[in-house]
Design a protein around this nucleic acid. Sequence first.
DNA 1: TCAAGAATGATGCAAGTGCATATATGGCGG
DNA 2: CCGCCATATATGCACTTGCATCATTCTTGA
Lengths: 171, 171
Amino acid sequence: MFDPHTVDQGMKRKPSTEATAAWIRLMRIQSRVLGAVEQDLKKAGFPPLAWYDALLELARAPGGELRPVELEKQMLIPQYSTSRLIDRLVEEGLAARRECKMDKRGLFVEITEAGRDLQKRMWSAYSAAIERHVGSKLSDADAAKLCSLLDRLGCSCDEATPVPPAAAAPR
Amino acid sequence: MFDPHTVDQGMKRKPSTEATAAWIRLMRIQSRVLGAVEQDLKKAGFPPLAWYDALLELARAPGGELRPVELEKQMLIPQYSTSRLIDRLVEEGLAARRECKMDKRGLFVEITEAGRDLQKRMWSAYSAAIERHVGSKLSDADAAKLCSLLDRLGCSCDEATPVPPAAAAPR
DNA sequence: TCAAGAATGATGCAAGTGCATATATGGCGG
DNA sequence: CCGCCATATATGCACTTGCATCATTCTTGA
């Protein structure tokens, strides 16, 4: 199983070799797959994935607008990161900042038509990339199994499906 | 609007909902787990994980030295990234650049005693973090299963085990 | 033997990220 | 109504990353 005197310099519990191997794979494979997908998008002339995620959240929101703080929670990125991502979307005319009369501290970010259009066009390339780098390498059953194993790592891996404008899975 | 199950902008194949879900989990969970582990290391006063990886590769190499190009292949990071990582290790006295007489274009990077020491001390915190964030959440069998599923995504996920100082020579 | 091209490593610059903090407003207890 | 703290967003600054390119040295083939 595991040779106790080989590892662990001193006190804390040691991970099994299986756990360690899983950790390594998790880091390396996701880095590789993410890189491949981002690369595909870039080669197709599209902006980074984060832009897609934001545009999708906005497009799905009622009225096509969200408070930055909501966006931040959906995307699980730091506050300042959200602020600057919005900067870029606005600069490119993909979204607009609107006043929030309910709470003068905040504001609304509203997706523009150009933004909706880009989101749709990106999904075409994005979905193809997912299929190429993930779907084509795993049966649906294996993909589901992978999901459930990964879910166990992120105690709470809830959250909206950051994917297609699809509908709640009919299953 | 558009239903991804029927629309599919034209020609590309669309990923199954299972594949898409797996993709999302892969991105989110690794981000979360990596963040947690890096955070643990930082809180323990250690440098980033990349430093550990580099130090381990150097420590395991015969003579404690490697060519940057070798390090680069082991760690799967870009060339300029390797160059700068070495800069920092050298600045901190954890490694040293040595002339390479065989090939004047290149050089050798040799780990110092301080470097070996840091690597060992980091493993203590690192292994504890892996156990806390991965090992404790998965049975060995599940971890192995996760490994094999991930491996299928990275067509070629070979390479040295970037992990414990374990089997290395006792000094 | 030499020119052309590949390999190795470093670096200038633009862009992105993390961290701390600034700014403005909302809410609450007194 | 006021002082105080919490919330929402922005930003200055240092550091890191990606990209392109440079300088040097090696290799190869005519």
